[in-house]
């Protein structure tokens, strides 16, 4: 492979990805516990505790149990969390405290490759979590296959989108405490109002319109469609919307990191 200096993004970004994988593998036994236990806890709490109160849910013209309504949404939320928290807190620690990026930038790696490697790693964390959660949720019979396998590329797409957004915030926050702002103003509202725990149709009209702007709404909706095996063309718009976030925030993340690191 010939790499000229003019290509700022080459396959070398995989070297950064490999570094993170190596560190992950050192503690995988601990790392895989949260995505394994989290859906279990939610399914028990909401399935056993709440479903008696909620009963069945109207979804796409059919009645489904409350647990099977929230199960795919948990995957959507997990895709968002894993990549967003990786490229915010974890990447920030590597960049700011550990000077890992500084060391990388003294090698043939470019800044673009370092940031790309980090975002792709964030998406990989989303993918790993999705696989583990799929195993648990399938065990309860809430995922229909083979359509369910579409959750895997969805994890990568959502992971890149939320990973890029996270990396953008890493480029602009003054210190690590400041991540509280995007978490409480952006991530937490999405967790609650993106059709995760109740259909957005339950919201007043204006709030429904607002919820449609949230990327997690579309990620959750796609996760549900893939889990139930209800594939239709209008989903292309939702995929396009997630792509749009990636296309906007990926270069923006690189721009902000460049301004932050390259002095």
């Amino acid at each position: 492979m010939i790499e000229t200096s003019s290509t700022r993004i080459s396959r070398r970004f995989l070297r950064v990805w490999q570094r993170n994988l190596k560190v992950y593998k050192k503690s995988w036994k601990i790392s895989f516990i949260p995505p394994f236990l989290e859906p279990l806890f939610y399914l028990i709490a909401f399935g056993v505790g709440m479903s008696g109160l909620v009963g069945e849910i109207h979804h796409q013209g059919s009645q489904i149990s409350y647990v099977s309504f929230i199960a795919p949404a948990l995957i959507g939320v997990s895709i968002m969390y894993n990549s967003f928290f990786e490229t915010t807190y974890a990447s920030f620690v590597r960049m700011y405290y550990q000077k890992t990026f500084d060391a990388m930038l003294a090698t043939p790696l470019s800044l673009e490759e370092v940031i790309t490697g980090e975002i792709v790693w964030g998406a990989t964390k989303s993918l790993i979590a999705t696989v583990i959660m799929m195993v648990v949720i399938s065990f309860f019979g809430f995922i229909r296959f083979p359509e369910g396998f579409l959750l895997l590329p969805l994890a990568i797409l959502g992971g890149i989108a939320f990973g890029s957004i996270g990396m953008f915030f890493s480029g602009i926050v003054a210190n690590i405490e400041m991540f509280n702002l995007p978490v409480f103003l952006f991530i937490t509202p999405m967790f609650l109002f993106s059709g995760t725990f109740f259909p957005i149709e339950n919201l007043p009209h204006w709030a429904q319109q607002a919820a449609l702007l949230l990327p997690l709404t579309h990620l959750t909706s796609l996760a549900r469609a893939f889990s139930y095996g209800q594939i239709h063309l209008s989903m292309l718009w939702e995929i396009a919307y997630l792509l749009l976030f990636s296309i906007i925030f990926f270069p923006l993340a690189i721009l902000k990191m460049r301004q932050r690191l390259i002095k």
């Binding site: 070297r15 490999q18 570094r19 060391a103 090698t107």
Partner: peptide, 27 residues
């Protein structure tokens, strides 16, 4: 080869892994 002023060793890795991971950056 560059030795920067600030310590930029990778605290997530061992001594040997630090060199091996760094070698990968050079393909």
């Amino acid at each position: 080869g560059v030795c920067q002023q600030e310590n930029s060793l990778d605290p997530d890795l061992t001594v040997l892994q630090n060199l091996e991971v760094f070698a990968r950056y050079f393909n």
